[in-house]
Design a protein around this nucleic acid. Structure first.
Lengths: 349, 349
DNA sequence: GCCTAAAATGATTACGTTCCCATACGCGTC
DNA sequence: GACGCGTATGGGAACGTAATCATTTTAGGC
């Protein structure tokens, strides 16, 4: 037992000291080589590098942290990790991070801005190198200040950080919605309803704005139903609306879930899609082509979103874009209307 | 600028030293209070706790790490984070970890066992408290040893760790498959095919075993098609099989993806489900009720899987179940056949 | 070849914690 | 009343690194 413990100490990871001894140089020289400080002669550097290789030396993160260095970890906060969209984002983020020598701390904020900020603070205390954030913070929330005080490279993605001038990668939700609704209009729909649940999320607000804008230009009256959280809610809304004299002829669903609910309720009621009711959703998902009928949706790419965000973050971390008050980057990713069958105008091949 | 820096230093987080000064005790006493060591008088403890509260003191992880303590981080390695099943697991794991004061380091191994072990080693170097692992290591892979040398509480979930006697939480894949195939048999199917892609994954092997077992008991000949990675592969398999004299009357799909592919190909070919071909899948997913027809599947709960795994891990970490060679726990979670319509025997309500 | 400036290197210290050991204090015992 | 013994407490060292600053070496100009 004692033996084990001793031998274990002995075979402990090599330190900077061991490297220094082996290379016949001082500690600082080794440290400089590691952090590739310029003030090391090429020959010395060679020696040290050889020693490092021979011992298989690796930096001790804990000690670096204690000296106030940042940890090679990036943080990722999304509203809901079990949401297929954010899961895809997380996957890509983690992948890129790994290939760049970072690890990824992942947290789901569950759309609670207090929780979100708390976790961000915890991450900051762990000296993460940067933070990727799909924020649930609203405009009027002063918690934004606490984020600012973190003194950390932050990239907001999917949603902007109200009042905080960070890098951001967003999707053209508005244009996407306009394309979708425009497509329906172009094919003669006179009454297009718009359904969803949470009107307080930035992307959804943008989509609604796009919907409104197009309808207004066409001189049509918007008809918006929000708060439709469950399939039952969708069903009762639909029943109400179908009972009116002039029910809508098309539905624009503001998100993936609502689109599916609509699809199911309409099918269950025997209403033919797209003949009796056209349907367009938002957010693509792998099963969209499999449902009956294949769903026309506005697709946004979580992979691209994550990729661009990570690149911005890494640039910031590596100080390529001015450590401080360089103008933050704003990237807008396109949303693409995937025309399938539920909208009624599938381009026949 | 200089001012900023200075005031920042000044207002730095309080240390154990500050607490000691304020409480008029030595450093060690404070340390003992924090780690609730018994050898502290109640009155002293009170004093120290008051000081801690007053200063808002929080432990410095980096310093603890340097002294060889474990970090309050748990690691999670899954094959693919963008897979809805593992994403749900990750969500739950992260949630429980958070409520217990841990953060979660997440990595997707991309089904590469070398990558998996490398990442596990990196995590171990970061002194995580424990590791949750959906392993891609095969039976004959000696990388398992490297995992063992990590000297870390590990819980294997969804798949066992071959040759490593850790805690494990698994699903009754075999029984689930038997139920599914049994159900088809019971309703008169004489030729049941079994399709999937990766036969090398533990859960899938178990499902195949279940399928084989039931068919054998019934005196039927198994008909297994593997490697069907894409929809095209499924289509060509189906075409081949339908061209035979005695095509199957039912399909048991070994996973969620293959089930969907089957569904789509069958639909596209105008083959009526379940009349002309019954279909049962494995793995439930939220859209299973929405597709046409609603898919009968064997459901396993990612949430439960993650919950049980985390509980085991936390118990290990907190040393409740004997730090060392206590008998590892093996938990088997049920898989439940969700009978809907694609199997042809939906119990009419 | 010498002097100076610049470049390269090393010794020391500090980061905040925990561990090992030493000390102080009660309290019962002979 | 001194002695031991156990419980509480504090002092000092150590963990591995990076910053500061002092020192040595090198190169370059005359």
């Amino acid at each position: 037992m004692l033996f084990r413990a001793m031998s274990k100490r002995k075979s402990q990871n090599p330190t900077i000291k061991d490297v220094a001894k082996l290379a016949h140089v001082g500690l600082m020289t080794v440290s400089r080589v590691i952090n590739d400080h310029p003030a090391v002669r090429a020959t010395t550097r060679k020696k040290v590098e050889a020693a490092i290789a021979q011992l298989g030396y690796q930096q001790n993160e804990a000690a670096r942290l204690l000296k106030g260095q940042r940890s090679k970890i990036i943080g990722l906060i999304v509203p809901d990790l079990s949401d297929i969209f954010f899961a895809a984002c997380a996957h890509t983020v983690q992948h890129i991070a790994r290939t760049q020598g970072y690890m990824t701390l992942v947290v789901a904020s569950e759309r609670d801005s207090e929780l979100e900020v708390q976790q961000a603070e915890l991450m900051a205390k762990r000296m993460i190198s940067g933070l990727l954030l799909v924020s649930s913070i609203r405009d009027d929330d002063d918690r934004i200040e606490r984020l600012q005080n973190l003194d950390l490279p932050i990239v907001a993605f999917d949603r902007p950080l109200p009042g905080l001038n960070t890098d951001a990668v967003l999707v053209e939700n508005r244009t996407g919605a306009e394309d979708a609704v425009g497509h329906l209009l172009k094919h003669g729909h006179q009454r297009i309803a718009c359904v969803g649940y949470d009107e307080n999320v930035y992307p959804v607000r943008e989509r609604i704005a796009g919907y409104r804008h197009v309808l207004q230009n066409a001189g049509q009256k918007p008809q918006i139903a929000l708060g439709l959280l469950t399939m039952d809610a969708v069903r009762s809304w639909l029943e109400t609306v179908l009972a009116t004299k002039t029910p809508p002829t098309a539905i624009f669903a503001l998100n993936h879930r609502t689109a599916i609910f609509c699809l199911q309720v309409l099918t269950e009621k025997g209403i033919k899609i797209p003949e009796q009711m056209a349907l367009v959703g938002f957010d693509d998902f792998d099963l969209a082509t499999v449902v009956k009928p294949p769903l026309t949706t506005v697709a946004q790419s979580p992979v691209e979103l994550a990729r661009r965000s990570m690149h911005l973050l890494l640039e910031r971390i590596q100080g390529q874009r001015g450590d401080s008050e360089h103008e933050p980057a704003k990237i807008l990713l396109p949303a693409k209307l995937m025309i399938r069958e539920s909208c009624g105008h599938h381009p026949k091949k």
